[in-house]
Design a binder for these strands. Structure first.
Lengths: 214, 214
DNA sequence: TCTCGTTTTAAACGTATGTTTGAAACAGTT
DNA sequence: AACTGTTTCAAACATACGTTTAAAACGAGA
């Protein structure tokens, strides 16, 4: 039980601190202090800081992707050849994501911030790791989206998917400060789940936009 | 001429390196080496690394915001009370932005990457600096958008503006790698200007989406 | 040509980082 | 109770960082 506790508290501390400050700005001393373990524990249990970063992602993404894969298969089977509906796909994705941070909805925000960092911060090793590990599930998801948007050219669909990804990662990343801003500006805060609800019609409408301006 | 050259090459090197690796991951030694100047030059001319970061943003944003302010005033005058059109506003913004990196269109991508970093990376001093310095222009822009979307609730508009910001920053940030991906996946690359063209209908349609899913 | 303020330079400073080490503490087995 | 493999611990290691310093080089005005 001792080992699991140490490993778990390191992962918890690292997840939170990385999401708050970024990877380079978070030292192993920050992490081990917050986790209440010895400094050397990270290198003992994970091998290096890079490996710890990957482990933080794996702990969230592996169950999430397994879950998503099951859901995608189920949808595919239920459809039985018919054309899937876009908002349904998006809601499936968002609900799987919300479920992945099962203990607290705040966890999804934390992880989105990490995902944003993975893109923006150097960390080439991370991008390679994510691609190798979770690329196939993403491709399966894309096949469904493609089936749901037959009228889009491959090029438009490619770019619009990334517009959607950007809107999602950016706003869910900053959900904490954005809801604080919303509360200050208009007296109405929101939690992550509500932001996701607002996000879906925006994304669905954007993806289906006419080719010209409108 | 000597001083201007040193300052300018430091800013050029810093802008590029920051955008590639982030702030914390880029050392003053990296910057001064790339710029071909002495290590101490940064602290001599800018005072500190933080001040250098702010200077990099100021060099891009100050002319851009002055230009944008002029354009906004011109639109306001031309309207003379009538309701402005959304796609027109977005195109005005994008064209002002493209003009800001006047020498090369790649510059806009670099700056968007920096803007993304400013949000994600710690750098509280940067957010405060940007807010103080460029907040008013953003508010003026928001007034126009509000006038162009009278049917939206303040809450929906708030969130959708940030969805738009996210889609823009994210995709223009990663425009280099994304166009490479597009080229690999579908044999068709794009430059920044073309991505912006694809972005506008997506954003306009998302902002005007019905409140429910659609 | 000499002078004085500005700019550049090489070297050092203090600090913080990721990692390694070797001994101590622990837990399970015989 | 003694042994064994695993985990923790305090301390040290080498390295890289941002910043400072004091002297040298420079450039324009008298």
């Amino acid at each position: 039980m001792a080992q699991k506790d140490t490993v778990k508290s390191i992962l918890n501390a690292a997840e939170e601190l990385f999401s708050e400050r970024g990877f380079a700005e978070t030292s192993l001393r920050n992490i081990t202090t917050k986790a209440g373990v010895n400094l050397a524990a990270v290198n003992y249990h994970f091998g290096s800081k890079k490996a710890l970063i990957q482990a933080v992602f794996a702990r969230f993404l592996t169950p999430f992707c397994e879950d998503l894969e099951r859901e995608l298969d189920a949808v595919q089977a239920r459809l039985d050849g018919k054309v899937p509906e876009l908002p349904g796909i998006l809601m499936l994705l968002s609900q799987t994501a919300l479920r992945a941070g099962h203990d607290s909805p705040r966890r999804l925000g934390i992880f989105m911030r990490l995902l944003g960092l993975a893109y923006t911060q150097g960390q080439g090793h991370l991008r390679r790791f994510l691609q190798k590990e979770y690329g196939p599930v993403f491709k399966a998801f894309m096949r469904l989206v493609t089936a749901a948007t037959p009228e889009l050219s491959d090029e438009d669909r490619f770019w619009r998917i990334h517009f959607m990804l950007g809107a999602t990662v950016f706003t869910l990343s900053g959900a904490d400060s954005l809801t604080a801003m919303a509360e200050h500006d208009l007296g109405k805060g929101s939690d992550i789940a509500q932001v996701v609800d607002k996000l879906i019609p925006f994304l669905a409408s954007g993806l289906n936009a006419p080719h010209q301006a409108g």
